[in-house]
């Protein structure tokens, strides 16, 4: 507020100096210029998105065909498909979501429905904020120290899934909390007034009403799992594997790491460009597809509420 006062003070001075009609005119002109610049900024951001997406789509679509999606890589990954990387990424999604989703929903229910304004609650909220801000490479180090080494899970699908689960836990908690907040208080009150216990009210009224929001948040965190590289780097992802992972203790291939390896350390970086573009596009399509699903769920839900 202090700043506010200062700004308006200098503004007043300007008005007094110029005064009259010309000031009015200047104000109009400067407004036009300012709005044009602000609009240009927004357009620039949109431009970034279009250029990045457009470039990858333009260069990637010719690489994608059924074979690319369903075949194993051949000849030191310079030919063939990316099937094992797709499978690995799907396994990672299943593994990490099946851990993080129930945990995240439970934590969010506690925080939104039960927790009072105590020190413990403050501590939990703070921990969630900080987990959300912890760099993914730090999660990777932690996964290496705890899951790979300390628990002895080794470099494996299990270690990577657990690490990624921790990474997306705060995201799921926050989005579930947001979904729970939008459930009207009246639903809870009228259920309680029917002699229904608190937990049953949450289970039968609050959670069902929040499900669209919870799904939206989860879908977005699936995108996050599919795209993250740093946390799996030292916890289980493999450069190349001749076969699919056969247990949770196997190493695996994953799309983002595959792209990274081909683009920076492959045996023939220039020759494999088409595969790189194709992999980038597949990854992008997965993530954008999930975003689209989230948007559609949100829209569907919004329309339903309008009845």
């Amino acid at each position: 507020m202090e700043l506010d006062a200062k700004v308006s003070e200098s503004g007043d001075k300007a008005i007094r100096v110029k005064g009259g009609l010309s000031m009015r005119f200047n104000a109009k002109i400067s407004e036009k210029i300012a709005f044009a610049l602000l609009g240009l900024s927004a357009l620039t951001v949109v431009g970034f998105v279009l250029v990045i997406l457009g470039y990858i789509i333009y260069n990637g679509y010719s690489a994608i065909n059924i074979g690319f999606l369903t075949e194993m890589p051949r000849l030191m990954m310079t030919e063939g498909g990316i099937y094992p990387a797709i499978v690995g990424t799907i396994y990672l999604i299943i593994g990490s979501m099946s851990i993080a989703l129930p945990m995240g929903i439970m934590a969010a229910v506690y925080l939104n429905e039960y927790a009072g304004e105590t020190r413990t609650t403050w501590l939990i909220e703070m921990a969630i904020n900080n987990l959300a801000g912890t760099p993914s490479v730090v999660f990777g180090l932690f996964g290496l120290a705890l899951f790979v080494k300390y628990f002895g899970f080794g470099s494996s699908l299990l270690s990577s899934s657990l690490t990624l689960a921790l990474l997306i836990l705060p995201v799921i908690i926050r989005s579930t909390e947001e979904a729970l907040i939008t459930v009207p208080k009246e639903y809870r009150e009228s259920s309680l007034a029917l002699g229904v216990s608190k937990w049953q009210t949450i289970r039968h009224v609050v959670l069902p009403a929040a499900i669209p929001g919870i799904i939206t948040g989860s879908v977005l965190s699936i995108g996050r799992v599919a795209g993250e590289t740093a946390p799996i780097l030292f916890t289980g992802v493999a450069y190349f594997l001749p076969r699919l992972p056969d247990s949770i203790y196997s190493q695996f291939m994953a799309l983002p790491y595959h792209l990274f390896v081909l683009a920076t350390a492959g045996t023939n970086i220039e020759k494999t460009r088409p595969i790189q573009y194709g992999t980038a596009l597949v990854l992008l399509l997965i993530v954008l597809g999930l975003n689209l699903v989230a948007v559609l769920i949100r829209r569907h839900y919004r329309n339903k509420l309008k009845i």
Binding site: P256, L259, L284, V287
Partner: peptide, 22 residues
Amino acid sequence: LKPFIEILAGVPSVVFGFFGLV
């Protein structure tokens, strides 16, 4: 405009890296 910003938030960092590189 908003969906563009959501898309930007969703693009994986390797894809940004790849784009930057090439």
